[in-house]
Amino acid sequence: MRVAIVGTGLMGGVHAEAWSHTDARIAAFVGTAGAGGDALAGAYAARFVTDLDAVLADVDVVDICTPTHLHAEFTLRAAAAAKHVICEKPIALTVGEGRRMIVACRTAGVRLLVAHVLRFFPEYRLAREMTARGDIGAPAVLRLSRCTFRPRKADNWYVDPARSGGMMLDLMVHDIDYARWVAGDVVRVFAKAAQTSGRPDETDHALAILTHRSGAISHLEGSWAYPPPIFQTRFEIAGAAGLIEFPGPAPAAIEMHLRGGEGSNHEVQLPRSPLHESPYATQLRAFHEALTRGTEPPVSAEDGLAAVHIARAAIESARRGQPVELDASGEAR
């Protein structure tokens, strides 16, 4: 199996490393000239090109690690050439784009695998497995928190709502997908968003309350308002017959993190824990298996689309100051 990775930034590099744990071969990196893509390609003995079309004939899979606003375009081009698609989360900037991507891949008879990597983080996966097999009874109240600093890339597409959808679509979407995976479909969303720094319209801290069809409630916190180099995740699932807690760093009576020196030279941080295999590698092995053996990975393109639905509803709720109801198909009303 031969792969073209589109996008040579943080996630392009992370996916490349992850692919090296499979027997697939990275044939090419597709990126913008002068953004370090040629060096990345050199490290994997792959070609570097600036146009996907130049390598489409040589590959079986297109792995899209670009900024979110480009996901749809590259997916449609790959599908038109009958190539399987792996796409970073969120699947798309809008529900409409995501749906077009799903239809295009289905029509072309290729797979569309969305990289909601949280489903491959062992702590999240184990908690979901235990919940699904009834260890703590029906899930009732979930708390999911994901707090880091504002991305600091030179061309900072992360903080540009036109390219990333903003913090809630880029960061909170992880926990939105997870909440849905654990507690099922969401029927109502109420969210509030704040901006502690940056330009107007750059939400960097948000809280959302999701109401699931089952009656469960999820409390979500997403933040780019923490000082660098923090990337802190916490969760708990309280069920009818028990509680699962992932408390994050060792709790103390008082914790304070002030913005001061820049703290680290990271542009963007990823959550890390010492493991024999990174969750990104686990994810790509699952995707590789899906493509070579036709198995179903634990996240579907429709799951990716549902997460965008809910994230968009949360953004809309924060804008309007009102709850947003989602109908049976998950569409915002």
Binding site: C147, A194, T196, S197, H205, S223, A225, Y226, P227, A253, I254, E255, M256, H257, L258, R259
Partner: peptide
């Protein structure tokens, strides 16, 4: 969540 940092008690 504040302008100059975050705190948790």
């Amino acid at each position: 969540i504040g302008q100059h940092g975050v705190m948790r008690v």
